[in-house]
Amino acid sequence: MEIFLLVLTIFMIVGSIVAIEAKNLLSSVISVGIVGFSLGIVFLMLGAPDIAITQVVVEILILVILIRATITTDNTAIEKHKDTFPVVVSLIFFGLFLIFAYFAVQELPQFGDPLPREAAAHYLDNGPEETGAMNIVTAVLLDYRAYDTMGEATVLFASIVGAFVILRRRGRKHRKDEDTEKVGILEDEDIKKNFEGF
């Protein structure tokens, strides 16, 4: 069990090294897929099927969005101006971070033997009776901590409104007649006009 997790985590680290250092943007984006799908398998082995489903599907979407961002543009990541300063500073800083992390990790509870958790024990013990939901993750998500889920929905809504506003071609003030079809959303007649061929 732990040996599988170890192998998968090392596989994820190798995939992220390829993703960071690849010269071609498309291959680097696809290497992110290695990390994400391995993460889905790790979640499945850690007894979290809810997150595993979501992670696999979201990873597909992330790949689609990132490939869409790279496919029509210049497809290389060769840097024209090489700065050694940020690389050296970040390597030193992150080496220090890892040294401290090594000592901090020793203080954490052993893997597979966490501290007694009162909230988790309450949810596992009384969840099915108090909420009626057999999936206790859903019970926590939509009953005990539904306020948190509402905040999440708000963040999703805000980010999507932001994407719409950023991709709009021109502000509302300076809009001309010819610009209306270029504003993120298509009108009905534009769809008819542009896709008549079907």
Binding site: A48, T54, A119, A120, Y123, I136
Partner: peptide, 16 residues
Amino acid sequence: GVDPLPQALVLTSIVI
């Protein structure tokens, strides 16, 4: 059973 609390929070974090 494993702890359901981090799972619920991570689920929202993935979608965000």
